[in-house]
Design a protein around this nucleic acid. Structure first.
Lengths: 147, 147
DNA sequence: AGCCGATGTTCAGCAGGCTGACCATTACGG
DNA sequence: CCGTAATGGTCAGCCTGCTGAACATCGGCT
């Protein structure tokens, strides 16, 4: 019977996608009070150690440049970040964390809040992380290699 | 240094989202030749055992009704599925697999193609599936419970 | 019979993904 | 030194996901 409601019988890809969506949903609900979401939060965290170009951020997030562009447009709109054309290379746009952004990052990320979504949700968290790291390493190499 | 490029140091949620996106991307590339994508494929597979209402499909996919509505609109547009108002309950829409849809499902799903994305990408696939099932079970209960 | 809440679908609008195309700037090779 | 390729961003358009709101139908209860 194909339409089994039991997750243990789903295709692995569906399992992955569903789990990711559920985690994003829970995390987004928490971040909403600062006008953030899961992707914006990660970008903020990346910029917290110093300005980055949009292309660098896109690569780090394993996302296309166009996607990063719009995420940053939103972050700037909410005042979490500022964007300025680089003076040394006028193609690049330098992304800098604002004070508002730094405060939001500190509050939202306090107490390892992002990891607490998994409390009681998974038996062996380190094992899960290890498996996922392998998948990311293998597939991202496969995707961004030749080109 | 926060912006580590090493997946092993990412937050677990980011690991999950990235892995899911990479798998979806690879799987979508394969399904494209039939005008399908990962979500449409799963829906087709669900309807292969008999007609379902849109609400039933949405629940099975753990997705909002509005989302399922548009996925089905696309599937119908591509001829994979037909939608008809139920005669016994005129609120419901009965979704039925078409011949084209059945053929696409058979070809695209042949040979366990969906699982082969993980060949050489993960050490212990059953373990990964087990962990993900736990996450899905816990978080979906948490999300859809009270309401 | 009539009202009212529950149910199933859809519309509108936002956000993050993707592709394809275009533009400005920079780097490189003849 | 100039033409061409490579690089960095953006625009347009599509898809899946979400929320909030509207709508029609059904069911139950008085």
């Amino acid at each position: 019977m194909p339409s089994a409601p039991d997750p243990a019988q789903w295709a692995t890809g569906r399992l992955l996608s569903t789990a990711a969506r559920l985690v994003e949903h829970a995390w987004d609900a928490h971040l909403d009070q600062w006008g953030l979401n899961h992707s914006g939060f990660v970008v903020l965290w990346m910029v917290s150690s110093g300005p980055r170009s949009q292309h660098e951020l896109a690569q780090a997030m394993q996302v296309e440049d166009q996607t990063m562009s719009r995420v940053l447009e939103r972050l700037e709109r909410h005042g979490h970040v500022s964007r300025e054309r680089s003076t040394t290379d006028r193609r690049r746009v330098e992304v800098t964390l604002s004070d508002t952004g730094r405060a939001a990052l500190a509050e939202a990320g306090a107490d390892d809040a992002s990891e607490r979504v998994f409390d009681g949700a998974v038996g062996d968290l380190p094992a899960l992380r290890e498996q996922l790291s392998q998948v990311v390493a293998a597939l991202s190499a496969r995707r961004w290699s030749a080109e």
